[in-house]
Design a protein around this nucleic acid. Structure first.
Lengths: 226, 226
DNA sequence: CTGGCGATTTGACCTCGATCAAATTATGAC
DNA sequence: GTCATAATTTGATCGAGGTCAAATCGCCAG
């Protein structure tokens, strides 16, 4: 892991992101004031469950996976964060301890925001507090959505739901490229890679074509019914 | 559903709860200012997924279940809130729409806090914002814990984990009463009632005795190893 | 104490997805 | 392009839990 200063381009990525976008320029500036950038190779562990954690992380580029470890060493993904997302914020309110492990899934650049400072800025600036609450809500929703999908849907249904989540409304035919390896998608959906593969082939009957990372839908309705 | 005003006893329950405890008296008072109490019978639906929701709820007594519905009518529990807990706060930041269904599991009394007002108080009062962030964090953690347990643990392991969560540290032998029907516990753990029952009988070999709602542990270590 | 009802348990069966092994297909380095 | 390696798919098997039905248990009103 190497660390650098924040350059102009990084700064633009941060300011254009969902979290900072809505903030007053001054508030955003204050947060970014002493931000540091770190770079990580694929597979690098960013932090481990239970370890002290005094940063909140912003994904400048790459991909990060949050997961928990089982007693037997098996891993369960909690979330995957692509470029532009902020994560690790909950440690800030829970004793500065990580509640999960984090790993870079690709070569990744992170902006590190000092969590004590962010917290004190949130105290002084309602807009920042508001933005944090919104972030926390969204992350809570993500987890609840996952939980509900795990409990209610079969593997092909979860995959269908993922595809539909990437498909604009009111369209019948559509195609897009997976933003990561199938490997990672499987983890995110709580499936073994083999199960994901079989789910895709089950969806083929409903007009889904898979070629490498390219997914094509030919019949949105069929997918919704699945 | 009947609605009443907040009486002195209710007020005491609210002020003694985890959320209000840490707040300055003035701030807590401001929130409770125009709170209304509603009573609900067992099985009453409190609100439905997607419906407009402009209150945050506090459980004065009874028990509330949050769940999502599958296309086929099956239900997946997201969380169960006993007396003293606050719920429904995330709608406040997500367009005042419920993201799940809520149902009273027992005869229940709720305090209803106007969410617009709470939100505007949070803007003016950093302590309230802080308390809300903590609440959101905890709810996010609950969901993540559930997700991880669902993905990593078998049914008996989840039950063991639940029991251990109710057992003080450093003790070998212990007994407690389930705070709700096995029915409800099954839902909370993402199991069919039959599976919960079988899980209990699998744990019998590890020194767990179940008589009605009374659970006895005779060997904490064995349970931890499970 | 007793009947009756709802909660829980048990049995039988079956489906989904995990796992392991093997085949096949991308992908990146030269 | 070609090889080596990693990713993905496919096949075969197995076990955890869901579902349905039936048997019990536990609790409460009378």
């Amino acid at each position: 892991m190497k660390t650098l200063r924040l350059n102009a381009n990084d700064r633009a990525v941060l300011l254009g992101s969902c979290f900072f976008e809505e903030l007053p320029t001054a508030a955003a500036g204050a947060i970014l004031d002493d931000v540091v950038v770190s770079t990580h190779e694929e597979h690098d562990i960013l932090f481990g469950q239970g370890e002290p954690l005094d940063h909140v992380f912003f994904v400048l580029s790459g991909l990060v996976r949050l997961y928990r470890l089982g007693k037997d060493g098996r891993e369960a993904d909690i979330a995957v964060f692509p470029k532009g997302e902020l994560f690790g914020e909950s440690a800030m309110f829970l004793g500065n301890r990580a509640t999960a492990n984090a790993q870079a899934i690709e070569t990744t650049m992170l902006a590190r925001i000092d969590s004590r400072k962010l917290r004190s800025l949130a105290e002084q600036t309602p807009e920042i507090a508001e933005a944090l609450m919104l972030l926390l809500c969204r992350h809570a929703q993500m987890a609840e959505d996952c939980l509900a999908e795990d409990r209610l849907l079969t593997a092909p249904q979860r995959v269908a739901s993922y595809i539909l989540g990437n498909c604009p409304d009111g369209i019948t035919s559509f195609s897009f490229r997976l933003p990561f390896q199938k490997n990672v998608l499987a983890g995110k959906l709580g499936l073994a890679p083999e199960a994901l593969s079989r789910a895709f082939s089950a969806l083929r009957r409903s007009g889904v074509t898979v070629r490498g990372r390219i997914i094509e839908i030919h019949d949105r309705q069929a997918l919704e019914r699945f």
